[in-house]
């Protein structure tokens, strides 16, 4: 059992990844940041719309879309991948809606049924066509972010941009960021009050499907690195942590990026030390950050709550008040 937790070697864990092994772990950390921040930004809107579990659903159901795209085009190009994911994402949304609307099955059950079915089909397809698809079952679940630096490098005009998955993810992050800057108002209003959004000339349905499309693209770009389930944590954890510290959306976005940066650095460190899946370690690191904030946050933290409770608000406030409670007649 002691063999499981390796000795903590400060040089190997804290220094080496960022010096002699930078060409390896630098890309891993960068990929981790790109994935977590892109997911976090999209996830903030999912949480605002109380659709956090749509993230869970879409992340599972892109698998058959991905596999089908690989099989049809027999390539692992970016475009077929995005097309497959978009198709799967839209199909999931429609399937959940129609089960929920056409029968008395409730929405949560409809979500569970739809994504588990699609995911099961995807897993069976990967097993059946293992040779063509090049995705093994473990990769589907938690990805292989450690393989990112081994992918072919993309370079434009002699400048090395990075391995293919990272460049793709960075482009998606950039796109998500630009979309949020461009449509900040519209996204905020349609998440907060669809009726008001419509009266202001924004189409909430369009926004909804746009968000689902962005979700599908983000999830599928992250898929090979972090898998179908860890991505759910990356959608929720940055925003959840940030929203314990601020209530303003713009600030929540910025704090999510901070969370993404810290958790990818800490994740690499943790993964190197414990020699375990780095993607999972990033999620654990992100969860540790969440736990820390949950405890110490000045507004919503457990300590703050405990203190407030100890101050015994009700009686003291009552006695402070000069108007006593009116007597019953």
């Amino acid at each position: 059992m002691n063999a499981m937790i390796p000795a903590f070697d400060p040089h190997a864990v804290l220094v080496a990844p960022w010096t002699e092994n930078l060409s390896l772990f630098g890309w891993i950390a960068a990929m981790g940041f790109a994935v977590t921040s892109a997911c976090g930004l999209v996830g903030n809107y999912l949480m605002l719309r109380r659709m956090a579990l749509m993230g869970d659903a879409v992340s599972h159901s892109v698998l058959p879309g991905l596999v089908a795209a690989f099989l049809v085009t027999s390539s692992r190009g970016t475009l077929p991948m995005f097309a497959g994911a978009l198709a799967a994402g839209v199909f999931t949304t429609i399937a959940i809606e129609s089960i929920h609307k056409l029968t008395r099955v409730k929405q949560d059950a409809a979500i569970g049924i739809t994504f588990s079915t699609l995911f099961a089909i995807g897993v069976v397809m990967t097993s059946l066509y293992a040779a063509q698809v090049d995705l093994d079952a473990d990769c589907v679940l938690y990805g292989e972010i450690a393989f990112v630096p081994l992918e072919p490098m993309v370079s434009v005009g002699g400048v090395v941009l990075g391995p293919v998955p990272f460049v793709r993810m960075a482009a998606v992050l950039l796109m998500v960021g630009l979309l949020i800057v461009a449509f900040y108002k519209e996204l905020l209003v349609s998440a907060f009050d669809p009726g008001l959004a419509r009266s202001l000339g924004t189409n909430p349905t369009l926004m909804h499907y746009g968000l689902m499309a962005a979700l599908s693209v983000v999830v599928v770009s992250a898929f090979e690195s972090v898998g179908a389930i860890l991505v759910v944590a990356m959608l929720i954890l940055p925003g959840a942590t940030a929203s314990l510290l601020s209530t303003r959306l713009s600030r929540v976005h910025l704090l999510s990026l901070v969370h993404a940066a810290i958790s990818s650095w800490l994740g690499v460190t943790l993964g190197v030390w414990l020699d375990c899946s780095i993607a999972a370690a990033m999620v654990v690191a992100g969860a540790l950050l969440f736990a820390l904030v949950w405890i110490v946050s000045p507004s919503e933290g457990l300590i703050a709550r405990w203190r407030r409770r100890r101050r015994a608000v009700l009686p003291s406030a009552l006695s402070d008040d000069s108007n006593p409670v009116p007597e019953a007649k």
């Binding site: 944590a233 959840a240 999972a280 999620v283």
Partner: peptide, 22 residues
């Protein structure tokens, strides 16, 4: 916290899974 139940569910689900994978 102000987090809704669905966010809490997703958070716990994926975090525990990540710990398990580690």
């Amino acid at each position: 916290t102000r987090l809704k139940e669905d966010a809490a569910l997703g958070l716990v689900l994926a975090t525990f899974f990540a710990i398990g994978i580690c």
